[in-house]
Simulated assay, not measured.
Amino acid sequence: MIEIERKFLVRPGILDLKDGKEIAQWYIMRGEGRSLRVRRYEGGYVMTVKIGKGIARQEIERKLSNAEALSMIDNALEEPVRKTRHSIKSGKHIWSVDVFQGANEGLWLAEIELQAKDEYFERPAWIGKEVSGDACFQNANLARNPISKWRSDFIAVLNGD
């Protein structure tokens, strides 16, 4: 299945978020334009393969048993990316707003899934700079190179510098 997703920074101090869902995701393999991850979400585990670059990528998901997931997690490349996901309806779309913890503390990203690359969507006031094409903000790269390693550059991006 092709996933069309755009990603944006969230303007600080505008959203008051409640009732999010905790996510942890481990990267098992990562290469140029592809990744394999295991995500713990809502009490279960899902394996996801993503292939491609840009806003349209192939995505394959499959539920895992606890034993399968734990076996794969034992071979993770690094510590998991931890975040709390909030769903916010705006216009005809549902936005996923991820508030990161741990080594990516302070990062808030909003994602919207679309049916077409050129599909129109409303941009709520809390949406900041688009980072869809910036590899630094892909979760696979945030696992390997969290913003705690480049916080001053992150703050400059957040402030639009």
Rank of each mutant, 00 (worst) to 15 (best):
I2L: 13
E5C: 10
R6Y: 08
K7F: 00
K7S: 02
L9C: 11
R11K: 15
P12K: 13
I14G: 02
I14W: 01
L15R: 12
L15W: 13
K18E: 13
D19E: 14
D19A: 12
K21P: 00
E22I: 06
I23R: 07
A24M: 13
A24Y: 11
A24K: 15
Y27D: 09
M29D: 11
M29V: 07
G31H: 07
S35L: 07
L36H: 03
L36N: 05
Y41I: 08
Y45F: 15
V46H: 05
M47C: 13
T48P: 05
V49K: 11
K50D: 01
I51G: 01
G52S: 10
K53R: 15
K53P: 04
I55Y: 08
I60S: 06
E61V: 06
K63R: 15
A67I: 08
E68Q: 14
E68N: 05
L70F: 04
A76F: 11
E79K: 14
V81F: 01
V81Y: 02
R82P: 00
K83C: 02
K83G: 03
R85E: 03
H86G: 01
S87Q: 14
I88H: 01
I88S: 02
S90R: 04
G91P: 08
K92A: 13
K92L: 11
W95R: 06
V97D: 06
F100N: 09
F100K: 07
A103W: 01
E105M: 11
E105S: 14
A110Q: 03
E111G: 09
E111Y: 04
Q115W: 00
A116S: 14
A116W: 07
W126M: 12
G128F: 04
V131N: 07
D134E: 13
A135E: 15
Q138S: 15
Q138L: 15
N139D: 11
A140P: 01
A140I: 06
N145C: 05
P146T: 05
P146I: 01
S148L: 03
K149G: 09
F154R: 02
F154V: 00
I155W: 00
A156Q: 12
A156K: 15
V157Q: 07
